[in-house]
Design a binder for these strands. Structure first.
Lengths: 158, 158
DNA sequence: GTAATTGCAAATGTTTTGCATACTG
DNA sequence: CAGTATGCAAAACATTTGCAATTAC
């Protein structure tokens, strides 16, 4: 999962190729944001990312962060996870490929399960569609959560 | 996929059991909203659902719809899909179990693929976790979309 | 130089919250 | 009756947009 120097370079290359292919500008913001994402190593939210960028380098506007993250998704470098109405997280696609996500409906905690553990049969070709990426979300309850606060009452014998 | 009379009755029963188990009230709103969801047959957004309820029966507040949908999710009757930052859709869990979702990153269109086509190995038991439901989202590009408007330029030879 | 990209701030749209009222158990 | 659920409206929140200023090509 660690994004070493080589990996960062590789991603910069992918971004460059993507920008050139689509006649988009190579701005410092785009490369800086990508590097910050690599440094974060794991899930991150937009606000977290922005703070990282600001702390490490220079100010970027919220709009630029949103715009760049979307561009990076289009470039195939980043994926977006919306785990619940309140929890949106992004992740390097290369990291996302290694695991599925397990979400506890009670506490909202998110765990990862290596992709080897839960295999997905990808031999089927969807007609008139080129698939680029897939993600599996497994919902349930973690052992710490016996009830869902908002609706369910705590049982006496629990 | 059709939610026949039997299915609706069955769901009402599940809701009743859930409400009783958790000492929650059996309000007309909750049952009405559930029935409307069954009648919709397929994906729906909160606003659509509210319109259905209003048109068919009586006025319900937005807050009640949100609250009830969340309760129905907790009861295991409804699942939520957030296909992109702007597209949130709900669906009967019984319907959702029959298919996976295929999302075009360009136009945002959503298709379904029967679960038999793309099998998921569910023999693995996640430690300290009781899984209740899983969903698979397949992202890519549909044949109608050759480029993503926001970033990519249309090629001359396309 | 020209058009793309940014920053800023305001706008948008969805979801949540607070409080008074109504209703279930 | 007691306490839960609702309706209503306002608040909160994330995301998007418009426009002027800046910058890459």
């Amino acid at each position: 999962m660690s994004a070493g120097v080589y990996a960062v370079d590789k991603m910069r290359e992918v971004l460059t190729a993507y920008l050139e292919k689509n006649a988009l500008r190579k701005t410092i913001e785009r490369y800086t944001i990508l590097e910050c994402i690599c440094r974060i190593q794991g899930h991150f939210e937009v606000e977290t990312l922005r703070r990282h960028v600001t702390e490490n380098h220079f100010r970027v506007s919220q709009a630029a962060v949103y715009n760049t993250v979307e561009l990076l998704m289009d470039a195939g470098l980043v994926v977006r996870h919306q785990f619940s109405s309140r929890i949106v997280q992004y992740e390097l696609k290369s990291a996302a490929l290694t695991h599925h996500h397990v979400i506890c409906s009670c506490c909202g905690s998110i765990r990862e399960v290596k992709t080897e553990k839960v295999k997905i049969a990808t031999n089927y070709k969807i007609p008139k569609f080129t698939s680029e990426y897939h993600s599996l979300y497994i919902y349930g309850k973690c052992s710490k959560c016996t009830f869902r606060e908002k609706f369910q009452k705590k049982k006496n014998n629990e």
